[in-house]
Design a binder for these strands. Structure first.
Lengths: 240, 240
DNA sequence: ACCTGAACACCGTTCAAGT
DNA sequence: ACCTGAACACCGTTCAAGT
């Protein structure tokens, strides 16, 4: 045995431990990173670096990155404005809350994209959900219908916010989609070609239009969701 | 100068170059990986390894990972069944195409999630879009309305497929969402609590219900999308 | 209880070197 | 034109070691 095989235990520390971090500071820092650099500029390691610590330190507060995302989204949702009770009709107030939700997502740069892949379960998300349910029920919509309808509404708003903020962040009139639609062959796809402008138009205005369409549809929905499970059966697996 | 500083150029090759790969084989291999291991099991490096080559080789065929995703999705969409012309009403055929799209996504394991973050622009995606437009126009729906409506329909179906396939792949009745909804305080969120079963129920049946709601809403939509851009104005930025 | 450094097992992408 | 190995600049997560 040589001396090199006797392992000296030496402290690997180069500085003393700091004061405990806490969830709030981490979430705030991560949201700052997100709104400054977008979704691609956000990582656990970067958040840790911004807090002057190593990535391992954050695992005291979160089980994983997904949990941090969930908390970030819920924190951001605290900015959603709920309507003053009884001011205007239920439909007006419903549109108001959803518009506020739209803008919180649209203004927090990478936030809308994050919302598409993260299902929030924190108090602010629940508060929003509760408010939406309340307004739909006030509108006389059947309970079971209302339960499914909120999903449709929230999804629509989230995806409009995501699509538009992506478009804003990478320059208005470029991107592969716009190119592909504009380049479409008139012979092969006459309707896409003819409607290429309408397919790409709208921007944030799609929000209001979609909400109208959805509410109209919800008002005309069958009271009890029909059992349509069987529609799903007679199809084969893809490319085999 | 020592001898060590005179760099000998030695081949780093350990085997001769293989026959060219080609896009098709790569896409096929990547789709196989996806349906076997799900979205988390898919990477450029794993696809390259499955093809017995290094990751750099694939860059001859794709500019980046996103482009591979787009091609994968379009390839998968070739399995979407289009309805036989004039068989049944337009609404029936519309539901049929969408159901086929639903199942292609649902059956290709990570495919639905991939579809949520990838906007396909290949021929099969365009063919689907063209068909949907055709059916809506056949239904007498205004052109501008139809252009926006396809987006709503496709998004709905994609997200139902994504949500349900995630739920299937991680065990039916678990996950943080289900836990959070079920654990909600009756005092704070009475409506969520009261409707907790309905909020989580439905599965693939939500597809048919949502399509009905959407078509009804589209049929009741104003002929010209209203200018709702201004709804979007009066809100502040989140948490500052 | 929580911070710290280092390591582990990955990523996508680029590049010079080869054929 | 396309394959190949190696490197670059990252990831999220785990772990023993420290306080």
């Amino acid at each position: 045995m040589t001396k090199q095989e006797i392992h000296q235990i030496v402290s690997r520390r180069s500085r003393p431990a700091k004061a405990p971090l806490g969830r709030d500071i981490i979430v705030t820092t991560a949201l700052d990173l997100l709104s400054r650099d977008g979704l691609s500029g956000l990582s656990l390691r970067k958040a840790a670096a911004a807090l002057d610590t190593g990535p391992a330190s954050l695992y005291v507060y979160f089980a994983n990155l997904g949990e941090l995302h969930t908390l970030m989204l819920d924190r951001a949702l605290s900015a959603v404005a709920l309507p003053a009770a009884r001011e205007g009709g239920w439909r007006e107030r419903l549109t108001f809350v959803l518009a506020s939700y739209l803008h919180v997502l649209y203004n927090g740069h990478g936030l809308a994209q994050l919302a598409l892949s993260t299902i929030p379960t924190g108090p602010n998300a629940l508060r929003l959900l509760e408010t939406l349910l309340e307004l739909l029920l006030e509108g006389g919509i059947d309970q079971a219908v209302a339960a499914w309808a909120v999903d449709l509404l929230v999804l629509h708003v989230t995806s409009v916010a995501a699509e538009q903020s992506v478009r804003r962040d990478q320059g208005y009139s470029f991107g592969p989609v716009i190119g592909a639609i504009n380049a479409v062959s008139e012979a092969d796809y006459p309707r896409i070609h003819g409607l290429r402008e309408e397919l790409l138009s709208g921007g944030l205005a799609r929000f209001g239009w979609g909400v109208d369409v959805l509410i109209n549809g919800i008002l005309h929905a069958p009271t009890l969701p029909i059992a349509t499970e069987d529609i799903a059966k007679p199809f084969v697996k893809p490319t085999e």
